[in-house]
Amino acid sequence: MTILGIPSAALFSQLLIGLINGSFYALLSLGLAVIFGLLRVINFTHGAQYMLGAFAALLLLKFAGIGFWPSLLIAPLLVALFSAVLERLLIARVYSLDHLYGMLLTFGLTLIIEGLFRHFYGSSGQPYAAPKELSGAVNLGFMMLPKYRGFVIIASLAVCLLTWLLVERTKFGAYLRAATENPKLVQAFGVNVPLLLTLTYALGSGLAGLAGVLAAPMYQVSPLMGQNLIIVVFAVVVIGGMGSLIGAIATGYTLGLIEGLTKVFYPEASNTVIFAVMIIVLLVRPAGLFGRA
């Protein structure tokens, strides 16, 4: 069977890859949006935190025999804890300065973290096996769906939904949204805003760590695995609107699918299509699709 002259199996396969990539884009850009929304820091360390999540899962398995399922919780928590320390010790010191300082600081931290891991583990990737329960594939009739990839899509959707509910439907989320607008007034009400900032940075970084664990069985675990991805993720955040959670989620999945479709219809443009979209969106809506001008 063909659709628009393309074999349906090939089309669906690329759409699945697009959806998988979109899942990672959404998770990572959601973390970036949460952090930028409140801290006003463009967190360049996000790619390194994604890598740290994958490495945490790998090292937990290697040295403590802790498998994928517990790692899915422990590794993001470790990344969140490490990030909370980074925020308290370093990032908190640049809040009162221009955005550029936060960007430079987090970029420098990325170089140090990735450099350290490259020093100890080299540049080549290391394999991390998917859990046995998720090995193999399911026949959907129109295509074969590898179970693990299906799990990644569902897990990513669930985490995005939970994060959105946390921000939009809880007291913590109300503090976060209010502090995004006027942190000093929220603090004057008696809310511990410095702690809120630390928790928010830890939350955003933990999401990156979770994406890293989910990525570990699909891609090689390598010190530079976050580098290429993070550039695309920044484009996603800009297209969605800096700081907009819904923008980050919707744009993440949509751009993953657009990228997948481009691979089918015009493969030469698949690496650049997201940036082309970014330029168009910036020209038409500089605040992003879901951003407030």
């Binding site: 000093k184 603090q187 004057a188 009400f189 008696g190 809310v191 511990n192 805003v193 410095p194």
Partner: peptide, 8 residues
């Protein structure tokens, strides 16, 4: 006192 302690 830190700002958030004053309201208390």
């Amino acid at each position: 006192l830190p700002l958030h302690h004053i309201a208390r």
